[in-house]
Design a protein around this nucleic acid. Sequence first.
DNA 1: TTGAAAGCGCTAACAC
DNA 2: GTGTTAGCGCTTTCAA
Lengths: 340, 340
Amino acid sequence: MTVTIKDVASRAGVSAKTVSRVLNNETHVRPHLRETVLRVIAELNYKPNMFARGLSSARSYLIGLFIHDPYWSGYATDIQLGALRRCRELGYHLVVEPLDPGEPGTVDHVLDGVAGLRLDGVILPPPLCTFEPLLARIEDIGLPYVRISPGEAPERSALVEIDEFAAAHQMTCHLIELGHRDIGFVEGIPTHAAAARRRAGFLAAMAEAGLGVEADWILPGLFTFQSGFIAGDTLFSAASAPRPSAIFCANDDMALGMVSAARKHGLDVPGDLSVVGFDDAPAARFSWPPVTTMRQPVSDMVAAAVDMLVDPRYRRGEDGATFSRQLPVELVRRQSARAL
Amino acid sequence: MTVTIKDVASRAGVSAKTVSRVLNNETHVRPHLRETVLRVIAELNYKPNMFARGLSSARSYLIGLFIHDPYWSGYATDIQLGALRRCRELGYHLVVEPLDPGEPGTVDHVLDGVAGLRLDGVILPPPLCTFEPLLARIEDIGLPYVRISPGEAPERSALVEIDEFAAAHQMTCHLIELGHRDIGFVEGIPTHAAAARRRAGFLAAMAEAGLGVEADWILPGLFTFQSGFIAGDTLFSAASAPRPSAIFCANDDMALGMVSAARKHGLDVPGDLSVVGFDDAPAARFSWPPVTTMRQPVSDMVAAAVDMLVDPRYRRGEDGATFSRQLPVELVRRQSARAL
DNA sequence: TTGAAAGCGCTAACAC
DNA sequence: GTGTTAGCGCTTTCAA
């Protein structure tokens, strides 16, 4: 009933092996034969059975994407969509696995779960890319992996990143150029190394400008709308204290939460308070006011990660770190920040 | 190197077939032997190879989740997370495929892409569950599928839904009980049948209460934050006209956009305008003000869909419609709506 | 450059 | 109840 490689072979008048060679773009097939085979494949609408393929070869054509379960933000969505699109282009499939570092035994649970899948490699976005128990187990198993923006240990594996420090530095300078002197900062997830880089970039830019930062104006956050809201609520509830004139949130979801909190406390953005974010999430563009942010090429980043995993040289273990890439960011000026 | 069924068999002193029986929970294995096998499996940390399994049996242990590519909302995220969790519990894996109905040839593209995967079934959330070309092709192929909230053709396949009409009716009554008479409505995606049901529920409740609805107060929407914002912006820009005192948005993302638009036009929610949503998305709870909404048990719904697909009776084609389920909703009162 | 044979790890069908 | 025998549809030897 379903078309197999044999059907294609007999119809094309060649052996199954030759069809296999064409399928896998191997050499040593005469152009003429290759064309015939390709034509028959199209005629019969033949699709190789992934299971037979995976069983007899070392490759599964499956890539894993591990995501941090409790915090599924717009960022995670962009990551997944980017990975999905690139995988499709390459004829691969994506296996998404949610993983909660806070829950004991999850690493084993997830890795056992995908053990039978023989994944060709996995992509680790933040904050999983710095979750040591996971990295250790993955290395132990010998599974190729690429980290997205880990912010540390560049030699450990291939990675794709932006220059978090420089980007945060640039954004802070932008605020300073707008005339702001009293600037607050909402941090990202503590275990997320990129969050520390952004904070460092912020502090460095402030220091270079000779500006001090109130300890109370550096607020904890979890990259979620909720945590941004809470940070703002906390900040504005300290009624007696002076307020910053601008706040740099380590991502857009938190910036949106911050705007909501400001609203609750009767503050106008950007009239009473400038708020800037990071990531250029879709909501940052369409909220009111639209949020000034730093655009990260998330889709390109994860696509690059897929490319590395698919690259036979990387899979063979050729010095992973040399595959690492750093992609450019872009400051997007919108209406949530204005000159003082 | 990797542990196979034979290793388990020889170590347990049984045949591979017996191990296979234990693995698949088949009958006709003495409890005593079953225990031994189970113990050896644990000792060796044996994980069956999915490819070998899929190749020799009719099942792939793979479930597809098709999602509407351009509109990835909090709803889609909840759907995916719910599906992922249930699949993991059952030892299945989820294959997510983005699909854009607006792009010519996508149906073929996606179905060709997963053809080699021999999916055990697919889940179709809105609005794909009413995308006729897709349904036709899936039925043509003979792939089992379950629709989530299609709002039409209940006999066509198994489905999981809530009573959209009753839920929207209830929400509208809530607004009326709060004293509102001038109520607007922001619609969902036109091709999304559930959106039509919600609208119908709203109109019915208004009619029953003897209340009229301004044609200008029924606004188009796409279930996105952006579209909710635009709807509000349009509504409030019509300066001369009177405004409604309450607006029912067909989902939370749009309600959030509506609140943002109100803010832009200097309107206070709920002071000047009550806004209610639908879905109980996480952001609805944590935004300011928190949004009154109708909670949909999204995770339970998609889990039920996975269960149906895994159920051998359904897969065997036993009258799919009898598997259909309707789950209860719950009105969640928060601060975005208040008594007039 | 091509093909024949063997086998990947599992389960279906059939014996016993 | 349990084991044996054949494949599932591919890719990998290795020979021609």
